[in-house]
Amino acid sequence: MMNVLVVEDDEFKAADIVRLISEAIGSATITRAASVTSALRAITAGGFPLVILDMSLPTFDLSGPGGGGSPQSQGGVEVLRLASRLASECVYLVVTQYPDIEIDGREVPLAKAAKQLSSRFKVNVKECLLYEFDRDDWQASFSRALTFDIT
């Protein structure tokens, strides 16, 4: 059984992702994190060979008075930066609603972002995918990205 961490603050998008993981992997145990802080807490605790990561995340979870703050467009990049300090051996799969990711002040298209994020932060970013709630074609790309061996 594989443990998967889904780092996503949007409930609708998270539900789509969890459904596809369940269909593709079947016996996966899925844990949710909805902020940079909760993602890093889970990654630090370990046990997640696969992390599905959004790029726009609030700093803290949205519980309690005042919520978790506004989503940071670079929240996912911050997770990768800090995960690199932990020497994280997770495989990261980025699923974002934006066609580009800002890396070191430059907008990088998703097709090139995984390689650049992996190189920049010394973590294993397998792929960066565009999530489109009103289109189904992202789902096939996501399911294909889940079909790899984690050793």
Rank of each mutant, 00 (worst) to 15 (best):
A28P: 10
L93H: 03
G105E: 00
P99C: 00
V79K: 09
F12N: 14
L146E: 01
A24M: 05
E23M: 14
E107D: 11
D100N: 15
R106L: 07
S143D: 01
M2S: 12
A34W: 11
T96H: 07
S35V: 03
D9E: 10
E102S: 13
T96M: 04
R106T: 05
S35K: 06
L130W: 08
C128N: 04
V79E: 03
A114V: 00
G68M: 03
E132H: 11
V4E: 08
A140E: 14
A42E: 15
E11L: 11
A24C: 08
A39G: 09
E23R: 13
A39K: 11
G47P: 09
G105L: 01
L57N: 00
K122V: 08
L146I: 01
I103C: 02
T29N: 15
A42M: 11
E8N: 10
A42I: 07
V18N: 05
I103Q: 04
S70C: 10
F133W: 13
A111E: 15
V123K: 02
R85E: 14
R41I: 10
A14Y: 14
P49T: 09
A33K: 05
A34M: 12
V79I: 10
G76P: 10
M55I: 03
G26M: 08
P49W: 05
G75S: 04
D137Y: 12
L110V: 01
M2P: 15
P65K: 07
P109Y: 02
A140V: 12
S22R: 11
D54M: 05
P58W: 01
D149P: 04
L80V: 09
I150D: 13
V7D: 04
G46N: 02
D137N: 13
I21H: 02
P109D: 09
T37M: 11
R19D: 15
L129F: 01
S88P: 08
S119C: 07
D104V: 12
D136Y: 07
M2N: 13
A15G: 10
V36M: 07
Y92G: 06
D104H: 13
S84C: 13
P65G: 11
G68N: 06
D16M: 09
A113F: 00
K13E: 08
G67M: 02
G76R: 12
F148N: 07
K122L: 11
R32F: 11
